[in-house]
Amino acid sequence: MKGKLKQVVDSLLIGLGLLFMFGVFSADFRYSLANSVAPLLDPLLALPIHVVIFILASITATYSSIIQKYAVDMQKFKEIHEKVLAFQKEYMEAMKQNNQYKLKKLEEKRPEIQKLQGEMMGMQFRSMFYTVVVTLPIFYWLWVRIYDITPEVHYKGYYGLESKFMVTVPFSGTIHVSEPIFILPWWIFWYFMCSVLLSQFIKKVFKLG
């Protein structure tokens, strides 16, 4: 019974993950998904925008770390990764030495290694599909709120310098969060920086990695 329930939940989350990922190509879908989480997230706008993004990055970092821990067999993943790396290293050395006998033997092992690579990729995709179920609605909500997107402006978005979404950053002074920093809009840069650093911290403190 538990096995069947796990399969149903697994299929549901993967299906939702795929839907959310392909939904990025539809402005209507992004807007609808953002509105679906708006009742939960809109109260956060009472806080400064950089604090809002930090809080949301903390949520996604925690969720993704837990998902990686429990949705992926990390011990098995590590073992497969080491086998694949060892094969690749051995193959490169045989190529450099032009050792045809060793290359032939390694080619016989290639189907097994490819199967392991496929298994490893499947683990990564499963974890990713689970994660986007939480991450993308948050991301779309930020997109809608920061750019003041509404159906009336056909999703083009607009903002003014008087917007409450202004931040003061090193070297650039006071800017709107949609302005670029290192190519990316500041809000995306800040979100990913917080998310990555917090993920590493959570994994280390709670031994999730």
Results as ranks from 00 to 15, higher is better:
203 K>F: 01
154 H>P: 02
80 I>T: 12
208 L>F: 13
67 I>C: 04
160 G>W: 05
96 K>L: 15
109 K>P: 11
16 L>K: 04
91 Y>Q: 10
162 E>S: 14
125 F>K: 08
100 Q>C: 07
176 H>M: 03
135 T>F: 08
86 A>P: 03
151 P>N: 04
162 E>P: 04
70 Y>M: 10
54 F>R: 05
146 I>M: 01
87 F>W: 09
43 P>C: 10
27 A>R: 13
103 L>M: 15
158 Y>C: 08
67 I>Y: 09
34 A>Y: 04
170 P>N: 10
194 C>A: 03
74 M>P: 09
114 Q>R: 14
193 M>V: 13
116 L>Q: 11
199 S>G: 09
91 Y>F: 11
49 I>P: 01
72 V>Y: 12
60 T>H: 10
109 K>I: 13
128 M>K: 15
45 L>H: 05
82 E>F: 06
31 Y>L: 10
175 I>E: 03
29 F>H: 07
55 I>C: 09
119 E>W: 08
195 S>I: 01
169 V>Y: 09
161 L>I: 06
78 K>G: 07
61 A>L: 02
81 H>I: 14
204 K>M: 05
97 Q>I: 15
106 L>C: 01
118 G>S: 13
55 I>D: 00
7 Q>Y: 08
85 L>P: 04
73 D>R: 03
61 A>S: 12
178 S>T: 07
12 L>W: 07
192 F>V: 07
206 F>D: 04
76 K>V: 12
79 E>A: 15
180 P>F: 01
182 F>S: 08
143 W>V: 10
112 E>W: 11
37 V>T: 04
51 V>T: 14
8 V>W: 04
55 I>W: 00
74 M>T: 11
156 K>G: 09
181 I>R: 01
108 E>F: 06
180 P>D: 01
12 L>A: 14
65 S>N: 06
96 K>P: 05
163 S>H: 00
206 F>E: 06
161 L>A: 11
200 Q>T: 04
83 K>T: 10
49 I>C: 08
94 A>T: 09
85 L>C: 08
11 S>F: 14
63 Y>E: 11
22 F>M: 12
110 R>I: 12
112 E>V: 14
35 N>K: 08
48 P>E: 07
95 M>K: 13
207 K>N: 12
174 T>F: 03
131 T>E: 11
72 V>R: 12
31 Y>A: 08
208 L>V: 04
161 L>P: 05
56 L>G: 02
116 L>T: 06
160 G>E: 11
43 P>W: 05
102 K>G: 14
143 W>E: 06
55 I>N: 05
208 L>I: 05
205 V>Q: 03
97 Q>M: 15
30 R>C: 10
22 F>E: 02
95 M>E: 14
35 N>M: 09
63 Y>I: 09
157 G>L: 04
208 L>P: 02
157 G>D: 07
166 M>A: 14
166 M>I: 13
202 I>D: 00
48 P>S: 10
14 I>L: 13
23 G>M: 05
175 I>K: 05
89 K>Y: 04
86 A>G: 06
187 W>S: 00
42 D>V: 00
188 I>G: 03
193 M>C: 12
65 S>G: 01
83 K>S: 14
72 V>D: 09
188 I>A: 07
1 M>I: 12
77 F>P: 10
54 F>M: 13
88 Q>N: 12
118 G>A: 15
